[in-house]
């Protein structure tokens, strides 16, 4: 009942955003284009590296590309739908605008997220899908409807993990006014996760698997499809990791919210 209501409400927010996009078409294309350019730069880096070596720690060019593609699409889900988390500190708490969300008869976290849908993410989604398709048709994987479905589930989980980790660190804003630097520092760790985790030492692997589980945003999902014998189990637990992250982040958000309403701003 509530879920249905929120789904319909979200649709209303989306409608408004689409109207704004249509009104500012040029902005939309420039935004989308700029992310495509940024993506191309890092893809170029991978290509150049593979002009000199055949394999990276046993992973071929297209396999690396496949990991990269999952990371890009997962990240784009986070960028399109959950981008407003970045602005919690400086646009809501610092300015006092957060109070506006608290006097509405809806969940403030929902309101915060629905307040913005990021157009730049569309460019990232587009390039992520292209990379994914190119990689998936060249890396020798045999695709079945079941494995495609699994891939979609894994990518959605990846987006959820990105968003949950960000929510967790955005919540710190309730105590420190603006936790943007902490969010940036954490988020930059996700760059490591665009490459096979097997190339890193144990410390980084443990960090990216069990502490800030960015490993599940790209490498484990990709590896479980590329090498099911060795990493198959990781495919199963990726959605579970996403669910646990979300629950933890939401509980933490509620703690932060309570701290905010008891101390004010």
């Amino acid at each position: 009942m509530t879920v249905w209501r929120y789904a319909r409400l979200y649709l209303e927010f989306v409608k408004q955003v689409l109207k704004v996009w249509l009104e500012y078409r040029v902005d939309f294309f420039i935004g989308a284009l700029s992310t495509i350019v940024i993506q191309f730069a890092s893809l170029l880096f991978v290509t150049v590296v593979f002009e000199h070596i055949q394999q990276l720690n046993g992973w071929s060019f297209y396999q690396i590309l496949f990991i990269y593609g999952i990371a890009a699409t997962g990240r784009s889900i986070h960028l399109i739908f959950f981008d407003n988390l970045w602005t919690l500190g400086w646009q809501y708490i610092r300015t006092g605008n957060f109070d506006r969300l608290l006097i509405r008869p809806i969940n403030p976290l929902f309101h915060l997220i629905a307040d913005r849908i990021q157009q730049d993410g569309v460019g990232q989604l587009a390039i992520g899908l292209v990379v994914l398709i190119v990689a998936a048709t060249h890396d020798g994987t045999v695709w079945t409807p079941a494995s495609l479905l699994l891939l979609i589930l894994l990518i959605l989980s990846s987006g959820v993990i990105f968003s949950a980790v960000n929510l967790f660190f955005a919540t710190l804003s309730f105590w420190m006014v603006d936790s943007l630097p902490v969010m940036f520092a954490t988020f930059s760790l996700s760059d490591f996760a665009r490459y096979p985790l097997t190339i890193y030492n144990k410390g980084i692997r443990v960090l990216l698997t069990w502490i800030i589980p960015y490993g599940f945003t790209a490498f484990y999902p990709a590896a479980s499809i590329l090498e099911p014998a060795k990493f198959g189990l990781m495919a199963l637990i990726t959605p579970l990791v996403a669910a646990i992250c979300s629950v933890l982040a939401y509980l933490f958000w509620n703690v932060g919210l309570r701290a905010y309403t008891s101390t004010g701003n």
Partner: peptide
């Protein structure tokens, strides 16, 4: 809070209750 929010309306000086861009 959310139930109370149904019963109240507010204008807070300089902060807008409306949506900026639309």
């Amino acid at each position: 809070r959310q139930r109370n929010a149904r019963n109240i309306g507010a204008v807070f000086g300089q902060r807008t209750q409306l949506f900026w861009d639309i």
